[in-house]
């Protein structure tokens, strides 16, 4: 892990020194354990603060949207796919972005770690290859890293950056080993009433903080539909219809665009699994249109075009 961080810092430093870019977007250590936060390095010196570890769960593509100047960005598979999507949607100009491609080791879910150490205060988590060293005031324990990966990283299909100007480190294994269809599959087995029950159960805790929306690189409207008041698509309350309207429409807006980066779930303070909805959309789009978002710049997202032979969706 250390070497890749050094490689990232070196590349970033060079880009800033050569004035190839005005800014390098990456991560730096967070102020609390198990957290890395997005970081913008503007000077060669600042690149020393860059890091890359299992807690880099924010989707950096978010920060590229309509951003001025020339920027370098650290991108693993999902982020690079989102950048492709943003280029397709005219939000990013390919020529103004320098992509530092990386392989994702699969990001970690602090929630899972905390749950495993319930009642104990974790002060530090150190990554060491396939294991994690979890330290507290009066304990230190080594656990398998694999157990604590985020759900979406299990079902990942593209861990290496797909488009890049420079690849840092070595290309690694592409998949996370899990099957995304298994996330979506349960829906197919349920009848409408059961589906509704499941859906209600999943989203009942939502506090409508919009962290999921804000973390998502697909959500860049100037005025979000939830904030519209004329007409008011969605009430402002915590009532169930409003919560459900929000989540349903948010999911629909992701159809054919979501790369399953997991930023929404990582951002959620109450642990809602939004992917239960988006993974179903992902599967449908893949099954019906033979399309996965962000794999190449040329193909057109199926929800943005109309073709007479578009498949019927039951």
């Amino acid at each position: 892990m250390t070497t890749i961080v050094e490689d990232i810092r070196a590349s970033a430093r060079k880009l800033l020194e050569d004035k190839t870019v005005d800014c390098v977007i990456g991560f730096t250590e967070g102020s609390v354990p198990m957290q890395a936060r997005p970081f913008f390095a503007y000077t060669p010196e600042e690149t020393d603060l860059l890091t890359w570890n299992g807690f880099c769960t924010s989707n950096l593509a978010n920060f590229l949207i309509k951003r001025e100047g020339r920027n370098a960005i650290l991108a693993q598979g999902c982020v690079s796919r989102n950048i492709v999507g943003l280029i397709q949607e005219n939000q990013v100009n390919r020529d103004d972005v320098y992509i530092l491609g990386v392989h994702s080791p699969g990001m970690l879910d602090p929630g899972k770690i905390k749950a495993a150490f319930a009642g104990r205060n974790i002060l530090e988590v150190r990554e060491n290859g396939q294991t994690l060293l979890v330290k507290g005031k009066d304990f230190e324990e080594e656990v398998s890293r694999k157990k604590f990966k985020r759900d979406n990283c299990y079902t990942c299909t593209h861990r290496n950056a797909l488009i890049y100007d420079e690849f840092i480190g070595e290309q690694g294994k592409q998949t996370g080993g899990g099957d995304i269809d298994k996330v979506a599959a349960p829906w197919d087995k349920l009848d409408p009433d059961q589906r509704w029950q499941e859906f209600e159960e999943e989203f009942k805790d939502c506090i409508r903080c919009y962290a999921c929306r804000n973390a998502c690189p697909l959500c860049y409207c100037k005025v979000c539909f939830v904030d519209e008041h004329n007409p008011q698509w969605c009430g402002k309350t915590q009532d169930e219809p409003d919560i459900y309207t929000f989540h349903l429409l948010r999911a629909f807006h992701c159809a054919g665009r979501c790369t399953d980066c997991g930023a929404c779930e990582s951002a959620c303070p109450v642990g809602i699994k939004m992917r239960r909805l988006t993974s179903k959309l992902e599967k449908d789009i893949r099954d019906k249109y033979d399309y996965q978002p962000g794999l190449d710049l040329e193909s057109q997202p199926p929800m943005s075009v109309y073709r007479p032979d578009d498949p019927e969706i039951e």
Binding site: W233, P241, L248, L249
Partner: peptide, 10 residues
């Protein structure tokens, strides 16, 4: 728009 459908149900 899907929003009309949701609104009708609401």
């Amino acid at each position: 728009s899907p929003k009309f459908i949701l609104q009708a149900f609401r």
